[in-house]
């Protein structure tokens, strides 16, 4: 495993921990999109179908369990926790799941490396992960009033994507036959979605101001 991949995984882990910290200690999920969190739970459930059949390393298995456990517990908190659920901006978080889920499923059925159930589900999870952040970005744009933890959460997620791209570039040059078009293109699309957010995040950091997205 190279340093970019490890750093990418660690920022991904940090993003989840920041979100859980916010929800667990402040007992608030204001500004967090439940739609995005449900999509992530679906992404991990579909991607890690091989968790008990395809052993890569202890590291991989433990990380998979953490991502599955954390994504489902975040959804549980936001839906059912008697205090946390009251802070959920339900009226602002109106993005429809199926606008994202259905096209990704159709695309995974059409474009995949192998037409088997597990492989199509794995491909579906890649396509869905690429766009799962959209409800969150829409919610940020609508509420505009972004607290630090929510801003850091989205920033860390974007950093994780950027580091994965560096990881692929590194692997392409160091490992023979490392070519994965589906992973790369969906990963690139996903990273580009953060570009706008990153721009405003950088501006607010540079000017030492509170993050504020334009209408």
């Amino acid at each position: 495993m190279n340093i970019f991949r490890l750093a990418g995984d660690m920022t991904h882990l940090a993003s989840v921990l920041v979100l859980l910290l916010k929800i667990h200690t402040i007992k608030s999920c204001a500004g967090v999109s439940l739609k995005t969190q449900e999509l992530y739970a679906l992404v991990f459930a579909c991607r890690y179908l091989d968790i008990f059949t395809n052993f890569v390393s202890l590291y991989n298995t433990v990380m998979k369990l953490i991502f599955l456990g954390s994504s489902f517990s975040i959804v549980w908190y936001m839906r059912y926790h008697k205090v946390v659920r009251r802070s959920y901006d339900k009226d602002q978080d109106t993005f429809r799941h199926y606008f994202l889920v259905l096209p990704c499923l159709v695309l995974a059925l059409l474009i995949n490396e192998k037409f088997t159930f597990k492989e199509v589900m794995w491909t579906f999870s890649l396509y869905l992960e690429a766009v799962a952040i959209l409800p969150q970005l829409v919610l940020l744009q609508r509420t505009r009033n972004i607290d630090n933890l929510t801003g850091q959460y989205v920033f860390l997620l974007g950093a994780y994507r950027g580091l994965y791209i560096l990881n692929w570039i590194y692997r392409y040059f160091t490992e023979p036959h490392f070519v994965h078009w589906i992973t790369w293109i969906s990963g690139l699309v996903q990273t580009l979605l953060y570009a706008d957010f990153f721009y405003y995040y950088y501006q607010s950091w540079k000017n030492n101001q509170k993050l504020h997205l334009p209408a």
């Binding site: 991949r5 395809n54 890569v56 991502f67 994965h180």
Partner: peptide
């Protein structure tokens, strides 16, 4: 195996 080659990432 060939199939799991790309699935060693998270």
């Amino acid at each position: 195996t060939e199939q799991s080659e790309g699935h060693d990432e998270l």
